[in-house]
């Protein structure tokens, strides 16, 4: 009954999938979606703090990626890094357009997924306070911190994704951590 074409023995090799997607193979792109959607969602949710926006922007990210996939150069940076830069821009764009910042406070229904009590207990930093501080960083610092620590990309991958040199990424990371430390310290002092 359903005549939707099934993937033809799709290779799990990401470069191969990307190549096929670049040639217009939607099924190959759908496999890339399956592989990366959870990471994209997590990244976007970290930015936006609510399910509706995170789902919307995640979908938007993949649609934009599909349209622009011809511009992605295989071998330069991981596909996920490229996707996350699109996701970052889409999330930042939504925040910029929306005046009501309270919309991006982490929604109460999401806190059970947000907090990891065990890790939280080991850390002296409140995770929601850290998130607030990260979102107040300069855009390049914000992006580097999230790609490095949330997404665990290495310096070379981040550098390739952002079109910068590795040395630049290390400097940006250093400034970002120093700034975060300052912000979090002042938040603690204000309490």
């Amino acid at each position: 009954m359903n005549d939707v074409a099934q993937p033809q023995a799709l290779s799990t090799d990401e470069a191969g999938l990307v190549g096929r997607a670049q040639a217009g193979d939607a099924q190959a792109f759908a496999v890339l979606y399956d592989v990366h959607v959870a990471r994209v969602y997590r990244y976007v949710f970290y930015h936006l703090g609510n399910q509706a926006d995170a789902e919307d922007v995640s979908q938007q990210t993949f649609l934009q990626a599909w349209r622009a996939i011809g511009t992605y150069r295989r071998g330069t940076s991981p596909f996920i890094a490229w996707l996350l830069t699109i996701a970052h821009n889409a999330a930042v764009s939504l925040r910029r357009r929306t005046k009501d910042e309270t919309r991006f406070e982490v929604e109460p229904a999401a806190t059970h997924r947000w907090s990891d009590p065990e890790a939280q207990a080991l850390s002296k930093y409140d995770r929601l306070a850290v998130r607030r501080a990260i979102l107040r960083l300069k855009p390049d610092q914000q992006q580097v911190v999230l790609l490095r620590f949330l997404e665990q990309l290495d310096y070379a991958e981040i550098a390739a994704a952002l079109g910068k040199r590795e040395g630049n990424i290390r400097v940006i990371q250093h400034r970002a951590l120093t700034e975060l430390r300052r912000m979090l310290a002042s938040e603690v002092a204000e309490r």
């Binding site: 759908a30 959607v37 620590f149």
Partner: peptide, 27 residues
């Protein structure tokens, strides 16, 4: 210590069914 706190990845997951519906919609 701050870097370690950042690295502790939050357990954020999409709600059930989102990926499947999103895939179908994307296709």
């Amino acid at each position: 210590a701050l870097a370690a706190a950042l690295t502790a990845t939050p357990a954020i997951e999409p709600r059930a069914g989102f990926a499947e519906r999103g895939r179908a919609s994307l296709l």
